[in-house]
Measured scan of single mutants.
Amino acid sequence: MQRVNMIMAESPGLITICLLGYLLSAECTVFLDHENANKILNRPKRYNSGKLEEFVQGNLERECMEEKCSFEEAREVFENTERTTEFWKQYVDGDQCESNPCLNGGSCKDDINSYECWCPFGFEGKNCELDVTCNIKNGRCEQFCKNSADNKVVCSCTEGYRLAENQKSCEPAVPFPCGRVSVSQTSKLTRAETVFPDVDYVNSTEAETILDNITQSTQSFNDFTRVVGGEDAKPGQFPWQVVLNGKVDAFCGGSIVNEKWIVTAAHCVETGVKITVVAGEHNIEETEHTEQKRNVIRIIPHHNYNAAINKYNHDIALLELDEPLVLNSYVTPICIADKEYTNIFLKFGSGYVSGWGRVFHKGRSALVLQYLRVPLVDRATCLRSTKFTIYNNMFCAGFHEGGRDSCQGDSGGPHVTEVEGTSFLTGIISWGEECAMKGKYGIYTKVSRYVNWIKEKTKLT
Rank of each mutant, 00 (worst) to 15 (best):
R3A: 10
M6T: 14
M6G: 11
M8E: 08
A9C: 08
A9L: 10
E10F: 13
S11R: 12
P12E: 05
P12D: 04
I15C: 05
I15L: 09
C18K: 02
L20P: 02
G21S: 11
G21C: 03
Y22G: 03
L23S: 00
L23K: 01
L24H: 02
S25Q: 08
A26L: 03
A26I: 06
E27R: 03
E27K: 03
V30W: 10
F31S: 15
F31Q: 15
D33H: 08
D33Q: 06
D33R: 07
E35K: 06
E35I: 04
A37R: 15
A37H: 15
A37Y: 15
A37F: 15
K39I: 08
N42W: 05
N42I: 09
K45G: 10
K45Q: 12
K45A: 12
N48P: 12
N48F: 04
K51R: 07
E53T: 10
E53A: 09
E53W: 04
F55P: 15
Q57D: 13
L60V: 15
R62P: 14
M65T: 06
E67P: 05
K68A: 14
C69T: 08
C69S: 15
S70H: 12
E72D: 15
E73S: 12
R75Y: 11
R75K: 13
E76R: 15
V77Q: 15
F78A: 09
F78Q: 15
T81S: 09
E82K: 14
R83V: 10
R83F: 08
T85C: 05
E86Y: 14
W88V: 14
Q90F: 05
Q90A: 10
Q90G: 09
D93H: 09
D93Y: 12
G94E: 10
D95V: 09
E98V: 06
E98Y: 13
E98H: 09
N100M: 07
P101F: 08
P101N: 15
P101Y: 10
P101I: 11
C102N: 01
N104Q: 14
G105H: 13
G105T: 11
S107A: 10
D110V: 05
D111V: 14
I112K: 15
N113F: 03
N113T: 14
N113Q: 09
Y115V: 13
Y115R: 15
C117F: 01
F121S: 11
G122V: 03
F123A: 15
K126A: 12
K126R: 10
N127Q: 11
N127Y: 12
N127V: 11
C128G: 03
E129L: 03
E129W: 03
T133H: 13
N135W: 08
K137W: 03
N138P: 13
C141L: 00
E142Y: 03
E142A: 04
E142N: 03
K146G: 04
N151I: 05
V153Y: 10
C155T: 00
S156E: 09
T158G: 04
E159W: 04
E159I: 06
E159L: 06
E165Q: 08
N166G: 03
K168N: 08
K168G: 06
S169E: 06
S169I: 05
C170S: 01
A173R: 05
V174E: 09
F176C: 03
P177N: 01
G179H: 01
G179N: 02
R180F: 03
R180A: 04
V181E: 06
S182G: 08
Q185A: 03
S187V: 10
T190C: 13
R191H: 07
R191W: 06
R191F: 07
A192L: 12
E193N: 11
E193Q: 03
F196P: 10
F196W: 11
F196N: 11
P197K: 12
D198I: 06
V199T: 12
Y201M: 11
Y201F: 09
N203Q: 05
A207L: 04
A207D: 08
A207P: 07
I214R: 05
T215A: 06
T215Q: 03
T218E: 09
Q219M: 09
S220P: 10
N222V: 09
D223R: 11
F224L: 06
T225N: 12
V227K: 09
G229A: 10
P235N: 07
G236M: 08
G236W: 05
Q237P: 07
Q237N: 06
P239C: 01
P239S: 02
P239H: 01
P239K: 00
V242G: 01
V243H: 04
N245I: 09
N245C: 04
G246I: 03
K247V: 08
V248Q: 11
D249K: 12
D249P: 12
A250F: 06
A250C: 08
G253P: 04
G253C: 10
G254Q: 00
G254T: 00
S255L: 05
N258F: 01
E259W: 02
E259Y: 03
K260S: 01
K260Y: 04
K260A: 03
I262Q: 00
A265I: 00
A266W: 01
H267K: 04
T271R: 05
G272Y: 05
G272C: 05
V273F: 06
V278L: 07
G280A: 03
E281Y: 08
H282K: 05
N283A: 10
E285S: 13
E285D: 10
E286L: 10
T287G: 12
R294F: 01
N295W: 04
V296M: 02
V296N: 00
I297G: 03
I299S: 12
I300L: 05
P301T: 07
P301D: 03
H302I: 01
H302S: 03
H303R: 07
H303T: 11
Y305W: 13
N306G: 04
A307F: 08
I309T: 06
N310P: 03
N310M: 06
N313L: 10
N313C: 11
H314C: 03
D315A: 02
I316Y: 01
A317E: 01
L318Q: 01
L318R: 00
E320L: 03
E320Q: 05
D322R: 03
D322I: 01
E323S: 14
V326K: 13
V326S: 14
N328I: 02
S329K: 11
S329W: 06
Y330D: 05
T332E: 03
P333Q: 03
P333M: 02
D338T: 12
K339H: 09
Y341Q: 13
N343D: 15
N343V: 03
F345W: 11
L346H: 09
L346Y: 12
K347N: 14
F348P: 02
F348C: 15
F348Q: 11
G349K: 09
V353A: 08
G355C: 12
G357D: 15
R358A: 14
F360G: 12
H361S: 08
R364C: 08
S365W: 10
S365T: 14
Y371G: 14
R373W: 05
R373C: 04
V374D: 01
P375V: 05
L376E: 03
L376V: 12
V377E: 02
D378L: 04
R379H: 15
C382K: 02
C382F: 03
S385K: 13
T386M: 14
T386I: 12
K387T: 14
Y391H: 13
M394F: 13
F395H: 02
G398V: 05
F399A: 04
H400N: 06
H400R: 13
H400I: 14
H400V: 15
E401C: 08
G402A: 14
G402K: 13
G403H: 15
R404F: 08
R404I: 12
R404M: 03
D405N: 11
D405V: 04
S406F: 14
C407T: 05
D410Y: 10
S411W: 14
V419K: 10
E420H: 03
E420C: 11
T422H: 03
T422L: 06
T422R: 03
L425D: 01
T426E: 00
G427C: 00
I429M: 13
I429G: 12
S430I: 14
W431F: 10
W431A: 05
E433G: 07
C435H: 05
C435F: 03
C435M: 03
K438D: 14
K438T: 04
K438G: 14
K438M: 04
K438P: 11
K440W: 03
Y441H: 10
Y441Q: 03
G442R: 15
T445S: 06
K446I: 01
V447E: 00
R449Q: 15
R449C: 15
Y450F: 05
Y450A: 02
V451D: 02
V451Q: 03
N452H: 10
W453C: 01
T458W: 00
T458Y: 01
L460A: 08
